[in-house]
Computed example of a mutant assay.
Amino acid sequence: MVNVADLAALDPRPTRAALTAYVRQHFTRPDGGYAIGHTQDMLIVRRSPS
């Protein structure tokens, strides 16, 4: 997770599967998307349809 400041220093680091499971458990929305609450401003950049 980007917001875990010391993630790179964790030993052992969480596996990709563990991070995926965590995100699915805590941030899945009813419509199948994901939402992570935050208090900072966010910028969403979308690719133009080709």
Rank of each mutant, 00 (worst) to 15 (best):
A9D: 08
A9S: 12
R46P: 09
A18Q: 09
G32Y: 01
M1C: 09
F27D: 10
R46K: 15
V4R: 06
M1W: 03
A8N: 06
A18G: 05
R47T: 10
V45P: 06
A9P: 04
P30Y: 01
R47Q: 15
D6G: 04
V4I: 14
S50P: 14
D6Q: 03
P12Y: 02
L19W: 00
M42E: 13
D31N: 04
A8S: 04
Y22F: 15
V45S: 11
T20H: 09
A17Y: 05
T39E: 12
L10H: 05
L7E: 00
A21K: 11
V4Y: 01
H26R: 15
R24Q: 09
H26K: 14
P30G: 06
G37W: 09
A35F: 12
R29C: 09
L19A: 04
S50K: 09
L19Q: 06
P30W: 05
V2N: 10
D41V: 10
T39K: 12
A18N: 06
S50R: 09
L19N: 03
R46T: 15
S50I: 07
A5W: 05
H38R: 13
S50H: 08
I36L: 10
M1N: 04
R46F: 13
A5S: 13
P14I: 00
R24G: 03
I44H: 13
V45Q: 11
A9V: 08
V2T: 12
G33W: 02
L7N: 00
A9C: 05
A35S: 13
G33R: 07
G37P: 12
A9F: 01
R46C: 15
L7P: 00
T15P: 00
M1F: 08
T15Q: 00
T39V: 13
R16H: 12
P12A: 03
I44D: 14
T20A: 11
T15N: 01
Q25N: 14
D11L: 02
L19F: 02
D41G: 13
A35P: 08
V23H: 05
R46G: 15
D11N: 10
D6M: 04
D11F: 00
T28I: 04
L10Y: 03
T28K: 04
R46D: 14
T15K: 01
A21C: 05
A8E: 13
A8C: 05
G32M: 00
G37H: 07
A8M: 07
R13T: 02
R16Q: 11
A21I: 08
M1S: 08
Q25D: 12
Q25K: 08
